[in-house]
Design a protein around this nucleic acid. Sequence first.
DNA 1: CCAGCTCCCTGGCTGC
DNA 2: TGCAGCCAGGGAGCTG
Length: 286
Amino acid sequence: MPELPEVEVVRRGLHEHVAGRTVASVEVLHPRAIRRHLPGAADFAHRLTGRTMVRARRRGKYLWVDLSDGDALLAHLGMSGQMLVQPVGVPDEKHLRVRVRFADDGPELRFVDQRTFGGLALAELVEVDGTALPQSVAHIARDPMDPAFDLAAAVAALRRRRTEVKRALLDQTLVSGVGNIYADEALWRSKLHGLRPTDKLTRPKAVELLGHATQVMHEALGEGGTSFDALYVNVNGQSGYFDRSLNVYGQENRPCRRCGTAVVREPFMNRSSYSCPRCQPRPRGL
DNA sequence: CCAGCTCCCTGGCTGC
DNA sequence: TGCAGCCAGGGAGCTG
C-alpha cells in the first residue's frame, strides 16, 4: 500500500544508495515483474547493463532513476513492491523478482514483490509541460509535493468531474500520489463523506480537501511513511511509524478522535472506506 | 471523451 | 487441523 510518502521515502533511499553507480548485471527472476517492459526480460537486462544511475525521481506513486545516455529505469511498487539495497550474498528474499548488481561490487538493488502488482521497465523520457517523464507516466498529474503543482488547476479539475469525491481523489490524472489511506484521512480532516458529489463541492471546500491531503502526506513523510505489516519498507528494510497517527483508516469501531463516535468501514469499489459517521455524514439519499 | 467496472496476484487471517 | 473464502488494492484496459 505504498502511496506518495512511502514512495518518496524509497526515492530518497535509492538516490542515496545508487546514484553514480554503474550496472554490471541484471537478473530477472520473475517475468511478471517486467511485464510493462514489452521487449522482454533479455532486452531489459541487456539494455540496463553498463548504464550509470544518475538521479532518482518521482511523480505521484511512480518512481524512476534517470540513466546515463538518456532513458530511465521506471518502477511502480503496486501494493507490495519493495526496492531493497542489500549486500551481495545476503540470502534471496522469498519474493525476489529482479536483482541488479553494480560494477563496484557494492550492495545490490533488489526488487521484491509478494503480490506482483508492481514492476520495473526501461522507459524513454518525453517532455510533458516542461518536465521530462517516462512515456508511461505522461498521463499522471503533478502531485501536491511537486514544486510546480498548480492548486487552482487541480481544484478546477476536481470540481469539473461528475463523480464522488473519493473517486476523484484517487484519480491519478487529477492529482497524483493519493491512495486509499490518505484519501480517507484527508476526507476525515475535511469532514467530508467520500460519496459527496464532486461538482457540488464549493471551491473553498475543495481547496481545503486538497490542502488536507497534502498536509497528511507531509506528516506521514515526516514519520517515514505508513506501514501495517512488513510489506512497505524503505531501501534498508525499515518501516515508518505513521500508522500510529491514522485517524480513520483501519480504525473500524475505534472512537473518532474528534467526537468519539465509532469509526465505520463501508464497502467501496471492492475495497473499504473508513469514516466517522457523525463528522462525515453520508450525503442525503445515499 | 468520460465514468466506472473487471481483472491481475499472493498470503495472512477468519470461520466452519 | 484443514480448507474454503475473504481481504488488502493500483492501475491498465475495456465498455457503455
